[in-house]
Simulated scan of single mutants.
Amino acid sequence: MLESHDRRTILAVAGALAVGPIAGCLGDDEGSDVLGDPEYVEGRPDPGGTSMDDLPDLEGELTIYSGRSQTRVGELLEYIEDRYDDLALEVRYDDTADLVSTIEAEAETPADVFYGSESQSMTHLEEEGYLATLPEEVLESVSEDSRDPDGHWVGFTRRFRAIGYDSERFDAEELPDSIDDYATDDRFHGDVMWAPDQGSFQAFVSVFRELGGEGATREWLRTMVDEQNVQTSPGGDSAMAQAVADGEVGIALTNHYVLRDHPDSTLDLAFTSDDAGAMFNVTGGAVLADSDRGEAAANFVAHLTAAEAQEYFATTTWEYPTVDGVDPLEQLPSTDEFEPPSFDLAGLVDLEPTLDLLREEGIL
């Protein structure tokens, strides 16, 4: 980014709420739709960070490969496109892993920006030489623990592993603060659910291996299966959350954002401390090395770290912003309450030993 332009004025948390499923705060002075879920934006402080007003204008055509669904981020990308008369976005939505495979299969990818649903996809593309280095000002717009130490990608949101539990059956104070105890506590026999085919669970097991070693991880997995009779989710994190909300199981090993779809149910969240059960991962973006619009692509990535985008993420995806000065929802625990372990976020790229372990134990 070389210069700053004042094209339009974004009003922070102002104006009447627009009609629509995801409309709320941060609208512009020309009356376009505003960003954020109206049910949750009212009364929030003005977001910190850099406004889109202070970024260079976007223009031309950009192709985005998005591993985040249109339901989750489509309105934000449309909002950015609508801000600039000379911008046209071509967005391909697909599973993150499938998009990685597509890039690897293409002789020269048409993608300018890769939007990944977790860090390991971006690190994999980096290691294979597909990513360009981002400008320093883009990297420094997010917290240090949410960006690639080698400068090839930045995180847009953080998601924490969590213990989803039935608040009618358990009190948070009575739940273990160690992930190990969920394999040994008799209270949870037959009452825990996990989703081993999900990337977030596999990343959790990878961190378990990094922190505790292969032997301890294998023993934990085996105990969960053989002694705790752990249940397998029929449909990922969403199905696990629903199973807890419906009283089918008392505990789900999941991600914190599942609370988004069950804010008024008996589903609540607890957290372990300083172990793999308390790890976090990031969604994020990178610029493809083959792009002939690298500067514009990096500017687009910067727009997703801007205050308006971070406020959108906070109030619609219920994930944690990566930019200082943008608060998570008050319905979520403060990050001050978390004690995540120290681990190499970029190290999550090597999933094969984890997948081998899960297959050997008959979990996958």
Rank of each mutant, 00 (worst) to 15 (best):
V301L: 14
P328D: 05
T305V: 13
H303W: 13
P333Q: 02
W318S: 07
D327E: 15
T316E: 13
Q331V: 10
L304E: 07
T315A: 13
T315H: 12
P321E: 00
P321T: 00
D324Q: 12
T305Q: 12
D324L: 09
T315D: 11
A302C: 14
V323H: 09
L332H: 01
Y312T: 09
G325Y: 09
P333I: 00
L329H: 03
L332M: 13
E330W: 04
H303I: 04
H303N: 15
D324N: 10
H303A: 14
A314Y: 07
T322H: 07
V323Q: 11
D327Y: 02
A307H: 08
F313L: 04
W318R: 07
P321S: 06
A306W: 05
T315V: 11
A307K: 03
A309Y: 00
Q331A: 13
Q310N: 05
P328N: 10
A306M: 12
T322V: 08
P321N: 07
E319I: 05
V326S: 06
F313E: 01
A307E: 03
E319Q: 15
P333D: 08
T316G: 12
E308G: 01
T317G: 12
Y320H: 07
P321I: 00
V326I: 02
E308R: 00
Q310E: 09
W318D: 08
T315C: 11
Q331M: 06
E330Y: 04
V301W: 04
F313I: 06
L304G: 08
P333H: 01
Y320Q: 09
L329D: 03
V301K: 03
L329W: 00
G325E: 06
D327H: 07
Y320S: 08
V326R: 03
T305C: 15
L332C: 05
E319F: 12
Q331G: 04
L332Y: 04
T322R: 04
T322E: 05
Y312G: 02
Q331Y: 05
T317I: 10
A309N: 04
W318F: 15
E308W: 01
T305P: 03
E311C: 09
Q310G: 03
T316N: 14
P328Q: 09
H303P: 13
G325M: 07
T315G: 11
A306F: 11
V323S: 07
E319R: 13
W318T: 01
Q331L: 07
T322D: 06
P333E: 05
Q331H: 05
